[in-house]
Amino acid sequence: MSRDEWLIEEQTPGYRTQWRVRRVLHEEQTPFQHLQLVEMEDFGRALVLDSAVQTTVGDEYIYHEMIAHVPLFTHPNPERVLIIGGGDGGTAREVCRHSSVQKVDMVEIDRAVVEACRRYLPETACGLDHPKVNLVIGDGLAWVAERRGEYDVILVDSSDPVGPAVGLFNRAFYENVYRALKPDGLFVAQVLSPFFHKKLIHDVYQVVASIFPITMPYLTVVPTYPSGLHCFMLGSKRHSPLRQGVRVPSWPTRWYTPAVHRAAFQLPPVVAELLQPTAAPEHAEGPCHAAPTV
């Protein structure tokens, strides 16, 4: 890919997203996936895995603030946090802003992602070197399976459910997440677009709701993600994200606020319908984002 070529994501046979690329900064085939760092015309430097945009300097703060602060402000005193994935470091950066957090275990399977982001995405990768962070290059599935009652909050900051991330979207994994959490723990996972991944959101909700007493999806807007509308799934043993007395940030944020926190759980009817047990959402996933059976 050279200057002024286009990076194209095929979502469905009838829908694609594309960005003009000024230059390719880095490209390699890792043991797990095809890795690129590119500079986009409008969104700046971007991490691309298997031809799917993961994060850009132009809008990364939205995703990272929402995946981190919604669960961490839901829990009254989060001290131990696990991040699965998140090799760009942005989620770790936001987690470490919380003074109550004492230790963050971060398990990323692909060392090449970490090294490339340290070089080309210092805005997010700064989170990788925070003194609270214990960075482990390894399999998040195995890590979670071996833990019992260790974490207040678990954040599943994975890529799309293909390649190395497939195992992060099934019942066995969510059951292990439940066991790895403390008695009042909670977790959040990103579950893609309610327009293009309806079946995935439906299936994940049904499974998580059968394991966690409180299961609530929430939404945000990320311009460079398919459709712009992005969904997270929250599963909690005890604490509701809409409870009274949720703490507020003591530092400046760019997207997250207490009002945004509450509003994120107000689902439009078309999204709420995906949560019904009898719903049969259209399988709209494109070939690069095919969802596995949950």
Rank of each mutant, 00 (worst) to 15 (best):
V207T: 14
G185Y: 03
Q266Y: 00
P226A: 07
R247G: 15
E146S: 14
A264K: 00
P287F: 11
H202I: 10
N176M: 12
A290E: 06
P226S: 00
C96K: 06
W6L: 08
K182S: 12
G90I: 06
D88I: 07
P122H: 06
A52S: 05
L72S: 12
V246T: 00
V53T: 10
T56E: 06
A272W: 07
A46M: 03
M106N: 01
D152A: 13
R80C: 01
I109D: 02
C231T: 15
F212R: 11
A264I: 07
Q29E: 15
L37R: 02
S240C: 12
A263V: 03
T30E: 09
E60V: 05
P71V: 00
S227A: 15
W143M: 03
R45W: 00
E10W: 14
L267D: 09
V153Y: 01
L192D: 11
S2N: 14
K132D: 10
H69Q: 14
K237P: 06
H230I: 08
P241G: 05
L219M: 14
F232W: 07
P213C: 02
V153W: 09
F212K: 10
Q266R: 07
S159N: 11
V222T: 09
V21S: 06
A116C: 13
V177D: 08
A92R: 01
I211V: 13
H34V: 04
I67G: 06
Q33S: 12
S236Y: 02
F73S: 04
Y205P: 09
I67D: 02
L49Y: 10
V70P: 02
L192H: 12
L155A: 04
P249E: 09
E285T: 07
Y205Q: 07
D59H: 06
V133L: 05
P223F: 05
M40D: 05
P258E: 05
F212M: 10
T91P: 09
V166D: 03
F169I: 08
P71S: 08
T124I: 03
R247A: 15
Y205D: 08
H283K: 04
A272V: 03
H202K: 11
V188N: 09
Q190W: 00
Q206A: 13
V57F: 03
G245V: 06
G167K: 11
A172G: 09
Q29L: 11
I137C: 10
R262S: 05
Q244C: 00
N134H: 13
L135W: 11
I67C: 03
I62Y: 00
Q54G: 01
P131C: 13
G138E: 13
K198N: 12
L267Y: 06
D129Q: 12
L7W: 10
Q206C: 07
P164K: 00
V162T: 15
F196K: 11
T56H: 05
T12D: 03
S99C: 01
D110Y: 01
F265W: 06
W251R: 04
E28N: 11
A145S: 15
A263T: 01
S250D: 15
D184C: 07
Y256N: 11
A142R: 15
A165D: 06
L141Q: 13
N176S: 15
A165R: 00
A52R: 07
